[in-house]
Structure formats: structure tokens, C-alpha cells
């Protein structure tokens, strides 16, 4: 139903339509501006960063924010502003990788479960089993098996994202499969794979994408948490969660070392969630006035 009603406006110029709808809500505008700034900082870090993020300078340890170092320096005298920019890159990359891998596998599982009822029980109960473990526990397990690092975080986040996406995709696909055009597709003799790819997937993709934008914020938060716990990205590679963890020791006399990466994560996830919410409202015709 969603795609029926959203296509008239969306098919002409989807990007312009989305931007215009976002522009009507001031909170979404601020969130969009914030997110754009953060993404630009991450993307352009090698060119914008004033210092080398790995450059240790023991003569400038734990300095407070100043004109030289806008966000101050950390325990090894590294510039926190530069490290935050590079850290943002890794953090965002972790989130996107997890969303991409988990989203792809989850969509595939969900569509197959809906399309072939015989596999439904097996696949969905498997997803329920995975769903019963918290993501942090997965991180611990994966880190214990392959050692902590970026790969471990991506695997843990993907595995914990897969069942959520699979459920959403299955529900959306079941709704699409009940539509007449799928029966028509069968009646013109299309192969199962063609039906799935051209009839089922495009008609549930908007539901899945909106869910993934909401999940992206959570994935980033979880990735940073795993790194904070020491299971993810290892020092000296800058990553926001790792950076926050490194500042814990001096929290009472140099709080900025922990606070700045934490606030960056907070702003990143907050703006993503606000945008995800408005995106859902815009794409859901039932909520449109």
C-alpha cells in the first residue's frame, strides 16, 4: 500500500520531494545540517584535520581546548579534533558495514521465508534464536573467537542486525505477496527469482530502507560501545568509542578527553534518529496530513 500512494509524488523527482518535505520541519533541518557536517568532517578528514591523528607529542599532554588545539589534546598529546574526525570515519564505516551486511542477509532471509512457506519455520526460528542474544554478548563471543578488532565488531553488528531486518522484510513481503500483481506475475509465467527480484523486493524496499536508517544509529552506538569495552577497534587507531575509553583515567581533571568523542557519538546518533523518524513519516502515507 505504501508504495502505491507514495509513487505519485515520489516517482517524478524523489530526491527533491524528500528534501522539500524535510525542509518543512525545522528540527529535521537542524538534524540534516548536523549530519551533513559530521559526514563531511569524516569524509574530508585527511585534508581538513590540522594535525596527524597518530602524532604523539609528550610536551602537550592533556591540554584543555585552546586556539592551537580546539578540542584539546589527549593523554599522549595527540590533537583530539583531528582524532575525532578520523574516529568519526571509522565509527560511521562500522555502522554502514554492519547495516549493509546485516541488511542484505536479513532481506534475503526474510524474502525467502515469505516466498517459500516451507522454509518459513526453519528460517524464522533461527532468526528468533539469534535475536535472543544481546548484541554486546555477540561482540564478546566473536572477539573471543577471532580476536578483538574492527572485523569482530562488524561481524557482531551484522549478526545482530540480520534477524531484525529478516522480520521486517518477511512481514513486508507477505503483504506484497498477497497483492494481485504478484499473482499476475505468476500467471504470465515468470520464474520465482524474477518474481522476487522485480515484484516482491522493489515493493518492500521502502519499508526495509526506513528500518535500516533507524537501525544505523543503534548500530553505530553498539559499535562504539564494543570499542569502548575494548573489543573493537584497537589503539592507536582513532575510533570514537576507543577514544572515550582512553579518557576514563583522567576524567576528573581532563574530562574533555572522554566528553568530546562521547558528545560526537551522541550528536551523530541523535541526528540520524531524528532523520530516520522524519523519513518514515514522509514515506508513510498514513501519517501524511
Amino acid at each position: 500500500m505504501t508504495s502505491h500512494a507514495s509513487t505519485p509524488a515520489a516517482d517524478a523527482r524523489p530526491a527533491r520531494y524528500l528534501l522539500a518535505a524535510l525542509g518543512r520541519d525545522p528540527v529535521s533541518c537542524i538534524a540534516l545540517a548536523m549530519l551533513t557536517t559530521l559526514f563531511l568532517c569524516a569524509a574530508l578528514a585527511p585534508w581538513l584535520a590540522p594535525y596527524d591523528p597518530l602524532q604523539i607529542n609528550m610536551s602537550r599532554v592533556l591540554q584543555s581546548p585552546s586556539l592551537d588545539h580546539v578540542f584539546g589534546t589527549d593523554g599522549q598529546g595527540r590533537d583530539i579534533f583531528s582524532r575525532s574526525m578520523f574516529g568519526l570515519r571509522v565509527t560511521i564505516m562500522l555502522g554502514f558495514a554492519a547495516i549493509f551486511v546485516g541488511g542484505t542477509i536479513g532481506t534475503l532471509v526474510g524474502l525467502l521465508a515469505a516466498f517459500y512457506p516451507r522454509t518459513d519455520t526453519l528460517l524464522m526460528r533461527l532468526m528468533d534464536i539469534i535475536l535472543s542474544f544481546p548484541a554486546i554478548l555477540f561482540g564478546l563471543a566473536v572477539a573471543a573467537i577471532i580476536g578483538s578488532g574492527t572485523t569482530a565488531v562488524i561481524i557482531a553488528l551484522s549478526v545482530s542486525t540480520t534477524p531484525l531486518v529478516a522480520r521486517i522484510a518477511r512481514g513486508a513481503a507477505l503483504m506484497v505477496l498477497a497483492q494481485d500483481y504478484v499473482s499476475s506475475g505468476r500467471a504470465i509465467g515468470l520464474h520465482d527469482w524474477t518474481l522476487l527480484r522485480r515484484y516482491v523486493l522493489p515493493n518492500c524496499v521502502s519499508t526495509i530502507v526506513v528500518f535500516l536508517t533507524l537501525r544505523l544509529g543503534q548500530a553505530i552506538l553498539l559499535g562504539a560501545s564494543l570499542s569502548f569495552l575494548g573489543l573493537g577497534t584497537q589503539p592507536p587507531t582513532p575510533e570514537l568509542g576507543t577514544m572515550a575509553a582512553q579518557g576514563i583515567g583522567f576524567f576528573f581533571f581532563a574530562p574533555h578527553v572522554t566528553l568530546i568523542p562521547s558528545v560526537t557519538i551522541f550528536l551523530l546518533v541523535l541526528s540520524m534518529n531524528i532523520l530516520g523518524d522524519s523519513l518514515r513519516d514522509i514515506l508513510d502515507p498514513r501519517l501524511r496530513s
Partner: peptide, 17 residues
């Protein structure tokens, strides 16, 4: 679709949007 075809009742929903 090749040797036997079918037309469904509801034209509003029997085309892929």
C-alpha cells in the same frame, strides 16, 4: 502466460506499481 493466460478481477491492484 504463453499458452494459458489469466485476467484477474481487480485491475487497480493487478499491475506492479
Amino acid at each position: 502466460g504463453n499458452r494459458i493466460s489469466m485476467i484477474f478481477q481487480e485491475p487497480m491492484t493487478s499491475l506492479n506499481p
